[in-house]
């Protein structure tokens, strides 16, 4: 049997049972993009993998050679896990949502280091979430994911006249950009300056936990809806965890 090949560090994005004894593990590799692999006997015995196939963790992975369609995990060891023993349901919803967004954006055999780092940040953000901040954290995840995907509209200049945006901007109806105070018509909800500055900081710095936590929770609604629309357009099928997250948000 030939020696295992190293996949380097991977994020454990999804774990599904396969038959009585095995697991299918979906990994996001920094070097190789999305990889589905079989963990043989991972359910029936703890010998090879122990507790190291934890969801939302970073692993060092070696692939062996399987006879089936999918590669087989030879060895894994955990580098870090974001969600610990006392994980709350809100944290699970956020982490799952980020995982699904990353899966949508990832491709097999296609390295995407910014996406990898974004998911690390998103899980770290989810782990630190507490009651009452779910709404801003979800928005921060959406905005920075759009940024990684290159789909985040310009937050500096009016999409129609090019003027610098400040107090009183609105999201244009078609969603592709923001309109300044003068170009905005009708009753569209104005975006507060504090919200705009928060979005700009996320756009500049990525998923910064401090910025995300300090997004003002008042006045987010109009922005949230537009951003959620952009995300929905970008993912081909509705995300399962988005449903759970919406229900959790309703209770938050």
């Amino acid at each position: 049997m030939s020696s295992p090949t190293s996949l380097g560090s991977c994020l454990c994005v999804r774990v599904q049972p396969l038959g009585d004894a095995d697991l299918i593990v979906t990994l996001l590799s920094a070097e190789l993009g999305r990889v589905d692999a079989v963990a043989k006997s991972a359910r029936s015995s703890r010998k090879r993998f122990g507790g190291s196939l934890r969801l939302f963790s970073e692993l060092d992975v070696n692939l062996g050679h399987g006879r089936g369609r999918l590669p087989v995990l030879a060895t894994t060891s955990e580098r870090r896990a974001w969600l610990g023993d006392s994980v709350g349901y809100d944290q699970l919803c956020l982490a799952s949502y980020a995982a699904e967004l990353a899966l949508c954006a990832s491709q097999p055999e296609h390295a995407d280091v910014p996406l990898y780092l974004w998911l690390c940040d998103a899980w770290s953000l989810a782990a630190g979430s507490v009651q009452g901040v779910l709404r801003p954290l979800r928005l921060a995840i959406d905005v920075t994911w759009l940024r990684v995907m290159g789909l985040l509209p310009d937050l500096e200049a009016c999409v129609r006249c090019g003027a610098h945006l400040d107090e009183g901007a609105v999201w244009a109806h078609a969603g592709q950009g923001l309109l300044c105070r003068n170009c905005a018509e009708g009753s569209a909800q104005r975006i507060g300056l504090d919200v705009l500055l928060g979005l700009r900081a996320l756009s500049a710095r990525g998923l910064d936990a401090e910025v995300a936590r300090h997004l003002p929770s008042a006045g987010l609604r109009s922005v949230e809806e537009r951003v959620a629309q952009l995300v929905a357009q970008a993912v081909s099928t509705p995300l399962r965890s988005a449903v759970a997250l919406r229900a959790a948000l309703a209770n938050d």
């Binding site: 507790g51 934890r54 969801l55 939302f56 969600l83 023993d85 006392s86 994980v87 709350g88 349901y89 944290q91 699970l92 982490a95």
Partner: peptide
């Protein structure tokens, strides 16, 4: 004793 099992317990 998994992330989802723990979250269910805390729920």
């Amino acid at each position: 004793i998994s992330v989802e099992g723990e979250a269910t317990a805390s729920y």
